[in-house]
Design a protein around this nucleic acid. Structure first.
Lengths: 235, 235
DNA sequence: TCCCGGCTTATAGTCAGACAAAAACAACAG
DNA sequence: CTGTTGTTTTTGTCTGACTATAAGCCGGGA
């Protein structure tokens, strides 16, 4: 079963390129990007491709186009920071330290509360799938790609168990960002603490239907991840 | 100072129309929408306009296009539920009751935590602006457009005071959705309880730098809004 | 002097038609 | 039955033209 590699239409890569340029500050808020014709010529693509790329960025709140004025980068407050693409673009370059802090602050707000909800409304189906993900993590270890994928799925399953569509959507966004920070962790840190026992605690709390324990286990888990991540960013 | 009315390019309205059709279930996940040429002809626009609209929907995670297969509606889990446009489209028709519940569940998770943070890291500048918004609310009342705008801004300012970009972005999304539910409240409910005293409590807690009180006041505020909203939805 | 209305003009917005490329499906050969 | 090859449908890309919009200038009037 091979994972279908992502197709790559021109408008997608142009959007990515411009998106990275914007979030990395090369085109700061208020700046006006080159005209559609210039962009098309410099990238050797047609104007339609450029326009479709710009529409995508506009849909994410990054830019605003109007005749005569051109295409202007909108204020950061208007950006859809929780868009998975946008988060991924943020981590293309070096992630600003403050941004990593913001991410963990959001996780520490959302995920413990979600774990609490999950402990209340989980079904046996959820428990089974969580158990399976945990097993994979234990067998393959957290350094392996399979183990990391299982880790991702473990956390996604918890949010899914809450039955709240908005939280599930957050799951995808935060997950994408966490995937990126995990890269940094494993790139720089020599020795990471083993988080599998903590995952086991969390699993037990959810299985037992113990919201308070689920919240506590999640908080511990995130704080540990934060310490590991920050120490590797400073290295 | 007139509020600039929103420009309305064709690709935007087509995107809106298709977006509403998708979130309202007329094109359920897995369904394949009509070909670009059909869409263009039936809407009396050119194919480029349709394509740009589709790119916008794709950027929000709603659809996925590929040659030969056509354009397919993606699974709900892939949608960017926190996108302000998407939230607005959800409320175009009648908002599903479960969705309103999800929204309040998210608010009760995020906003009290944000108020706590705000009480810790607020600056005098924030306090001044919060105070001003509160004054406007008191003078104009919550039934007036100005009062409601001030209410919105009050809550946005709190999230802004946290200094967390991701939370600020959530502010825009949640705010857009709340604006829609507020419409329902005032449309159907005869008498709403006055929430201004609660806002005053919250303001005082943030000014005093009392995180626990800020959390408590916010919880009360949201619960009251939830009760009012749900009673008007049932009416 | 200052304000207002019309003019100019650069830029995004829209249109039309053509060809390229991907991929599902069918037909065919082994 | 299986692998391969061709066919065909649909999105993807290109080109070039025209339209609509709005910023900024310029001139006329209070």
């Amino acid at each position: 079963m091979v994972e279908q590699q992502k197709r790559n239409p021109a408008h997608r890569s142009i959007a990515r390129e411009l998106g990275v340029a914007i979030v990395s500050g090369r085109y700061p808020p208020g700046a006006i990007l080159p005209g559609e014709l210039d962009l098309a010529e410099s990238r050797n693509v047609s104007r339609s491709v450029v326009r479709e790329a710009l529409r995508m960025l506009a849909a994410k709140g990054l830019i605003d186009s109007r005749p005569k004025t051109g295409t202007r980068v909108r204020a950061r407050a208007d950006w859809n920071m929780l868009d998975p693409d946008l988060l991924a673009w943020m981590f293309e370059g070096e992630p600003p330290l403050g941004f990593v802090d913001s991410l963990f602050q959001l996780r520490i707000i959302v995920e413990p509360a979600a774990a609490e909800l999950a402990a209340r409304s989980r079904t046996t189906r959820h428990i089974a799938r969580l158990g399976h993900a945990l097993e994979v993590m234990e067998e393959k270890g957290l350094s392996s790609p399979e183990g990391q994928a299982a880790d991702q799925q473990f956390h996604n399953l918890i949010l899914e168990a809450t039955g709240n569509d908005l939280l599930i959507s957050l799951s995808g966004s935060i997950g994408a960002a966490v995937r990126s920070t995990t890269l940094f962790k494993h790139r720089k840190a020599k020795q990471l603490r083993d988080s599998i026992p903590l995952h086991r605690d969390l699993f037990a709390a959810i299985t037992d239907g113990d919201p308070a324990a689920a919240r506590a286990a999640t908080i511990t888990l995130i704080l540990q991840a934060q310490e590991d991540t920050e120490s590797s960013l400073l290295a």
